[in-house]
Amino acid sequence: MPDTLFARATRAIEESRALREQHRKAAGHYGETVNDLRLAMMDSAMLRSEIKARRDNEEPEVRSFRGNKQPFPLRNVERR
């Protein structure tokens, strides 16, 4: 009987070690994913601010056509 009890305890310890190792790997993968997501969000924010800065620096004539008043600049065309 002690041998069976010892075998069960050994198996439980091995399974516990395996589960801890799986948890470490999953936690490491999660951390890498979160870091990648943070970098992507930072890149997106930088790109948006760059686009806004370029739009702010454009000539007023070009900027006025972005407000969906006209799909493109029309010249020498009568409006009704």
Rank of each mutant, 00 (worst) to 15 (best):
M1Y: 08
P2E: 15
P2D: 15
D3I: 14
T4N: 07
T4D: 11
L5T: 12
L5R: 09
F6T: 15
A7I: 09
A7M: 11
R8Q: 14
R8D: 13
A9M: 13
A9H: 10
T10S: 07
T10M: 03
R11V: 05
R11W: 03
A12D: 12
E14L: 11
E14R: 10
E14D: 10
E15C: 01
S16P: 02
R17I: 15
R17P: 00
L19G: 01
R20A: 12
K25P: 03
K25I: 07
K25L: 14
K25N: 08
Y30H: 10
E32I: 00
T33H: 01
V34D: 02
N35D: 07
L37Y: 01
R38N: 01
L39P: 00
A40C: 05
A40P: 02
A40I: 02
M41H: 00
M41W: 00
M42S: 00
D43G: 01
S44E: 07
R48D: 13
I51T: 05
A53R: 14
A53H: 04
R55K: 06
N57G: 06
E61H: 08
V62I: 14
V62R: 09
V62N: 06
F65W: 09
R66V: 10
G67H: 14
K69Q: 12
Q70D: 11
P71F: 09
F72L: 05
N76D: 13
V77N: 00
V77M: 05
E78I: 11
E78D: 12
R80W: 06
R80Q: 06
